[in-house]
Amino acid sequence: MNTGKRLMQKSLHIDPGKCTGCLQCEMACSLDNEGAFNPAKSRIKVFDFHAEGRFVPYTCTQCAEAWCMKACPVDAISVDTLTGAKVVSDALCVGCKVCTIACPFGTINYNQTTGKVLKCDLCGGDPECAKACPTSAITFIDADWTGLERMRDWASKTDSGTRAEA
């Protein structure tokens, strides 16, 4: 039972209107996670809607349902209690890819080179993508302020247990 409210957790807030598509976020992410500038291995991806002149950065919202975590057959994905992030343990991941089809947002992906899956882990609470964004299109702020309706199910909602749908 919840003994009280947890401290307010922060979430990535994405404002596509401010994004210029420069991919500094992808470089920062891959540098932190892969040790090289390698956008192909970034956990955050910027989609270029060329015909509309729109750039949309997109990554895991650390959703309350945690589809990936619940689908993992070997308990390789867990919640970082500090940040609320769902984190993959490379040591435990067997590379079965079930999480990659379970996540309806398409934000956990298999890396054929390592045989493990990749997803955003909020960099332990100080996301590199937000720090690298030159236009503040990606910010890391109190969960209550992350208002993008469709990118729902943010970390704060885990506080209330579950949602009455599946």
Binding site: T20, G21, C22, L23, Q24, M27, E52, G53, R54, F55, P134, T135
Partner: peptide, 19 residues
Amino acid sequence: LITNGACFGCTIACGRISQ
């Protein structure tokens, strides 16, 4: 002008996207 757009890694973003 619809928006400005950047080339890879560019923090200036002078590119024009027009309609």
